[in-house]
Nucleic acid binder design. Structure first.
Lengths: 408, 408
DNA sequence: CGAGATTTGTTGTATGGATGAACTTATGCG
DNA sequence: CGCATAAGTTCATCCATACAACAAATCTCG
């Protein structure tokens, strides 16, 4: 954690990052693609400096120059800068309780390839499942330009790295999964097993992270337009995942285990998961555990007392747990993800009421409860974005240095 | 939150901070005062660069050159560098439920002046109390060299700034106290009232912060020797304060309100404060509310069942609340402060047991429960250190530029 | 006791990145 | 067609750090 000394190169690295971020973020906020001059004005850097930096970024495919659009004003038309498509991409994989998948996302946030397999992975064999995932990863990457048999006209896609989302506690430095209660996995050498079945992951050791953390990252990305977001993300799945987002950044804690909300004690020794987890709700509503959340929604819509009571109990427990979190973290915004997003009609109002009643700072900064915008596969996108975030944080590592001479 | 562009000056600022920190931190870790060469080796900067930076810092009184000690090795003897005494200092004030005080601390962490007044400030009049504090502040600063009537041989102490610790929710940008339940204060224009009674605070608008946050900062400072500390600080007072320390830094949240632990719901709707607050414990033990914590300790030592039960209930509630916090934040270390420090004999074991049982990551990173090392007045020290921390973060703002020419 | 070894701190010179002003390019407008 | 306007580039300058050579102050060993 010792801060490193700043040499001159650090300056360039820093400013390169600022320029790159400025270009990539423009699209997110709905702003038109900025020109070099716009970037200079926005960042406070000199035009000459920005020009030099942009040229480097363009040469390495980290920034794309668009066609000059017919301008309305006088003056030389600007060259719009934007996130490039298909130059640099990252891979986000996921193993969850009921599905398995891979996504490859590029700097423009376009999904280049996607593979998803549904199944029931509770109590599954880690080696077998990870072998399947490894094959899926290699298959997906094989479909990328420049990686499969075909090398078309365009440049090949560079792969910046890979990540893997898991529904449990992860040791990201060792590349192992410590504990995933709902998968029934414990102390699994995930990185090692994946390296056996996937040449891609052998070359790009995946960044392991918690599924909720990565889903929250995708969610934060979707909310960039509203400014840097701070919120608590609660993801109802078979278990309950949680994540903390501060100023658009995931707060993972020392080991990346922060956000563990499901095991919060809410009342008389019961944990949140035992009251508001999917299995618990279904059982309380008298429904089959395997059925999923749709029957519960139907029953509630039909006015079944057991279903309504189950949802009310879950909402109360969620409200208590989240009030504690909001008081502790001074983050007044809650986002409901996973199956909670689908149950939001029944959960939102009572949770908000609980927050309003219990949050000490409520009178000055009213709490909010929102529904996640990311879809089911948010964690894969979030994982890819986490890797791309490393690129933005350290752009010079991804620059391709060209020869000074170079006559065509 | 937009990151500013790095000009060349930023480089210098950054490196100046690194060098300053290296010198100031050396004492904390028990290392001998480093020489310029030591700093260069430790930071990775060139000797020439360090020399130039150190010279600036010395000229402005941010670093002190000690007498060369007779060395044991060959070579030119080194000039030891250390934190200077009495050159630059910060003021930490505090209003709490049962006392009121000021401390002035310099860069060497020496307490230059201290004033404390004991009293009962529950339900007090804010204007009167703050007038009293303002007078106390001016009195304390008047006793500093160069600020009172006397201007002795040495240079005057420069005051870097002031801070004020309050047991409640604070709006630090507006300089107001929003809510302090145990003082009975609400929406008080603290900065405005203090400016009336204190010329010092008129010149140095105090940084308002939560008492527990600042006490935790002092605690983190005392633990620097063990490396950057991450812990949850629980301070038992009339109410219950809490603070989160991450890598030696206070996590205050968006508005500085994070750490609010006392209003956590622990069981059947009761909050932690209602079970483990000082008043609640005393009542449960059948003791007088005004008595303070000593009678409770005596009763427990005598084996009184009511006292033991009160402590046990408090410990259980604390254990549950802290388990939730540890699971949420991935910070496995708890420090008991305030009156909890004195009750630690009775609280520590059961709290640790609760953590061990409930913390999901416990098997891999065992939780710990520690007793605070800071004394009663930790918040004042912490407040002063917070201000000094700003100096270290931006040293160039505190440099005194000398004329190039200067013949004596 | 003196020459060499050793380590600290300082004094140039070189390097690399940002800056600002002048210049070129490309457009709209009258 | 000339002028205004704005984008992007070129170039001399500045500034902080690096590197190397040097001066200073002490120990060590013959």
């Amino acid at each position: 954690m010792r801060s490193t000394p700043a040499r001159q190169g650090s300056l360039r690295e820093h400013n390169l990052g600022i320029v790159l971020r400025e270009v990539l973020e423009a699209a997110a906020t709905g702003a038109p693609p900025p020109s070099r001059a716009d970037v200079a004005a926005a960042t406070g850097l000199a035009r000459a400096t920005v020009s030099a930096l942009v040229d480097r970024l363009v040469a390495s495919g980290l920034v794309a120059e668009l066609e000059p659009v017919p301008t309305l004003r006088a003056g030389r038309p600007a060259v719009p800068l934007a996130a490039p498509s298909g130059t640099l991409a990252a891979l986000g994989a996921e193993v969850n309780v009921d599905y398995l998948g891979v996504r490859v996302v590029d700097l423009s946030r376009a999904v280049l390839v996607e593979r998803v397999v549904h199944g029931d992975y509770r109590g599954s064999d880690p080696a077998a499942v990870l072998a399947e995932l490894g094959a899926l990863v290699d298959d997906a990457v094989g479909a990328l330009p420049g990686h499969g048999a075909d090398v078309p006209d365009g440049r090949p896609v560079r792969l910046a790295g890979a990540s893997l989302a898991l529904p449990g506690l992860v040791d990201s430095t060792a590349g192992t999964l410590l504990l995933a209660p709902n998968l029934g996995w414990r102390e699994v050498d995930v990185a090692g097993l994946l390296a056996r079945s996937s040449s891609v992951l052998r070359e790009h050791p995946p960044l392991l992270a918690n599924e909720a953390d990565l889903a929250a990252r995708a969610e934060a990305d979707l909310r960039r337009a509203d400014g840097p977001a701070s919120f608590v993300y609660v993801s109802g799945e078979i278990g309950i995942g949680g994540a903390i987002v501060l100023d658009g950044q995931i707060f993972g804690g020392r080991h990346g285990w922060a956000g563990e909300l499901g095991h919060t004690v809410v009342a008389d020794g019961r944990t949140l998961e035992q009251v508001a987890g999917q299995d618990a709700m279904l059982r309380a509503a008298g429904l089959d555990r395997q059925a999923g959340v749709e029957p519960l929604l139907r029953a509630a819509r039909a006015g079944e007392p057991a279903a309504l009571a189950a949802l009310a109990d879950a909402a109360t427990a969620l409200g208590v747990a989240l009030s504690n979190v909001v008081n502790l973290l001074d983050v007044g915004h809650v986002v409901l993800g996973g199956t909670y997003a689908r149950l939001a009609v029944h959960l939102r109002a009572p949770v908000l009421a609980a927050l309003s009643a219990r949050v000490l700072a409520g009178p000055w900064v009213p709490p909010t409860v929102d529904v996640a915008r990311g879809g089911n596969l948010a964690a894969m996108t979030g994982g890819a974005l986490a890797v791309l975030g490393q690129v933005v944080a350290e752009p010079s590592a991804w620059l391709v240095e060209h020869e000074v001479a170079g006559a065509g």
